[in-house]
């Protein structure tokens, strides 16, 4: 379980998070909705310890990670996988190098076992025979899938998705959504996805949270989101330029 309590974060004079409270239960997929630049990705980076909050607390499995030293994060991060918005594959490595990197660094598996595991993870995301390709040779959708295979290579407890469908065509977006649902069902992974793609959110979420003006203003199931009369959520879901959300 992940608990975020009254977290504040600013960059220079820009106060991005202004007291975020959110709980993600074990085994669920929580989708965080919000406009571009509202601080969704910052929340993921705070959970991973890539950024430190200005104040507030974050608990993972009961441990307050906001008190962790840098060296303690590496142990925690082995429980996590993260899919980046642009996949963030290592250009200088092959697909096999990317997916197998954590296995080579953190386990005592033989090279043969690692290759087998890499192939299995790639198969799980619908790719095979691409192990020796470089990221530059892959399409956008393939990059995301390799990124996903890399994120789940160590069989993590948690997977964080940063805009998993951004930049993909609708069909490839649906493939990625199906994969996220499949991973939750088959591997019982607890997931947090940040997105502004409503279709994706409805498909993958157990619960949806709305981040607006630095705070979580709504949490509910996809059905509750569809029925809500919260004007901010309504405007966002309907994609309307008219409403309480300022468009400038």
């Amino acid at each position: 379980m992940i608990e975020i309590k009254n977290v504040f974060k600013s960059f220079g004079g820009n106060q991005v998070l202004r007291g975020v409270d959110l709980t993600i239960k074990k085994g669920e997929t929580m989708v965080i909705l919000g406009r571009s630049g509202c601080g969704k990705s910052v929340m993921l980076k705070l959970i991973m310890g890539l950024l430190r909050p200005d104040s507030g607390q974050i608990f993972v499995n009961g441990d307050e990670i906001t008190l962790f030293k840098d060296s303690q994060f590496n142990k925690l991060r082995q429980k996590f996988g993260m899919l980046f918005q642009a996949a963030a594959l290592f250009d200088s490595m092959t697909v096999d190098g990317n997916v197998g990197l954590a296995l080579r660094e953190h386990t005592n598996l033989s090279e043969k076992e690692i290759e087998k595991k890499v192939a299995a993870k790639l198969k799980l995301v619908g790719l095979s025979g691409v192990e020796q390709m470089k990221p530059a040779e892959l399409s956008g959708g393939m990059k995301k899938r390799v990124g996903l295979a890399r994120a789940i290579a160590m069989d993590p407890e948690y997977v964080l998705y940063d805009e998993p469908t951004t930049g993909l065509d609708p069909i490839m977006s649906d493939v990625i959504n199906e994969l996220i649902v499949c991973l939750r069902n088959t591997l019982s992974i607890t997931s947090i996805a940040v997105t502004h793609d409503i279709v994706s959110a409805y498909k993958i979420a157990d619960r949806i949270a709305m981040l607006y003006e630095g705070k979580i203003i709504f949490v509910g199931t996809p059905e509750e989101v569809k029925r809500t009369d919260n004007p901010v959520v309504r405007q966002f879901v309907e994609g309307s330029s008219q409403g309480p959300i300022e468009t400038l």
Partner: peptide, 8 residues
Amino acid sequence: DALQTLAL
């Protein structure tokens, strides 16, 4: 950042 998420 991705390297760090892989605990490296």
